[in-house]
Amino acid sequence: MTTDTADRTTRTDGADTWAVLLPPGRYEAERLVHHDTLELIGAEGSQPRLGDQVAVLADAPSRLVALGRVTDVGDLCPEEPPAERVEPRLVITYTRRSFDTPVSADALTVEGPVTPLDPTAFQALADQLGPPPPRQSWMVSLNLPIEAVSPAEAVREFWAYVQELGPRELPAFVWPSGNELAMQAFVLGEEANQDPEEDD
């Protein structure tokens, strides 16, 4: 696997900005659990190089959900031959996320999972995204009633439920630190009403 960044000086296409389309189901996964990187395997055609900038898109409709930088490239080799089963591998480290508030990318023409992107178009997208909002402290809680014979067993049962049900079924409660009255419940990465009396 070659990772020499000097290779970038010999490229002929002149492109160092790219559009990458999230694989099916990955957008939902990114909204549920924090990831530092996006790894793509098997994307054919021209490939970004180390250090290239990437606009990460979700499809249908086309939306910009993150910006990133290529931090690893190469081939994913199976443990055993044949060599023709080697698949290209691309790792993108996120530099800016906006999975909850994406911006429209309808004006882009994307051909396949990895598409060269004009630097001007990339910058226009990044400008729409804007700077990241300021970070603040949040309190996050997950409360489950557990029947058990001891505190230790209750904790084990708790983690078993968390692993089995996860963020797709269990509501997590979140509120700004110091303002518990602003508590909200989230399921599937979105706010969810937990008060049956308020249901229609």
Rank of each mutant, 00 (worst) to 15 (best):
S141T: 13
D100G: 01
F122V: 01
T109C: 14
A43K: 03
F122E: 02
P78F: 11
L32E: 08
R96C: 01
S137Y: 08
E39I: 11
D195S: 15
G178S: 14
A182Y: 14
M1S: 02
T115I: 04
V70T: 05
D16W: 03
E87W: 00
S104W: 06
L76N: 11
R26Y: 07
L108W: 02
T2G: 04
G112S: 08
W175H: 13
V33M: 09
D7E: 08
H34P: 02
V73Y: 01
G14D: 13
R31M: 11
L90N: 02
D52Y: 00
S141I: 12
A55S: 06
D127C: 07
R26C: 09
G68W: 04
Q194Y: 09
L142M: 15
A107V: 08
T115G: 05
M1A: 00
L40C: 13
E190I: 03
V174P: 03
E84K: 15
D16N: 06
G112R: 08
P88E: 05
V155P: 03
M1Q: 04
G166T: 15
Q53H: 08
Q136E: 12
G74W: 02
E30A: 03
Q128N: 02
W18K: 05
L57A: 10
V155R: 06
W175G: 00
M183A: 12
Q184I: 07
P81L: 05
A126F: 06
V155S: 12
R97V: 00
P116C: 10
E197P: 08
A182G: 15
D200N: 09
S150N: 06
A154N: 07
L181S: 14
R97Y: 01
S141L: 10
A60F: 05
A55L: 10
L181A: 14
R31L: 09
D127E: 10
A107H: 12
G112T: 14
V73P: 02
L40K: 05
D59M: 04
R156D: 11
T9K: 05
A58V: 06
V56I: 09
P176Y: 15
P131N: 12
A185V: 15
Q194D: 10
A192Y: 15
N179D: 11
T5D: 04
P131G: 04
E164D: 09
L90I: 11
P176H: 12
Y94T: 02
S177I: 11
G112P: 05
A154K: 07
A154L: 06
V65E: 00
Q184D: 08
T101P: 06
Q163K: 09
R63A: 07
V86Q: 13
V56E: 00
A29Q: 03
T5G: 05
D118A: 13
V86L: 08
A154S: 09
N143E: 07
R69W: 04
H35Y: 15
D106E: 14
R63T: 07
V114M: 02
E80N: 06
T10A: 14
P48F: 00
V187S: 12
E190Y: 04
E39L: 12
T95Q: 02
G112Q: 11
A192R: 14
L129Q: 04
Q53F: 03
V73C: 12
E153T: 03
S137L: 14
L76S: 12
T101F: 10
P61T: 13
T5S: 04
P119D: 13
S177T: 13
D4A: 06
V33D: 07
P151R: 03
V174K: 13
A182C: 07
A182T: 12
A121F: 08
G112I: 15
A185S: 14
L57F: 07
Y161W: 11
E191T: 15
G14R: 10
M139P: 00
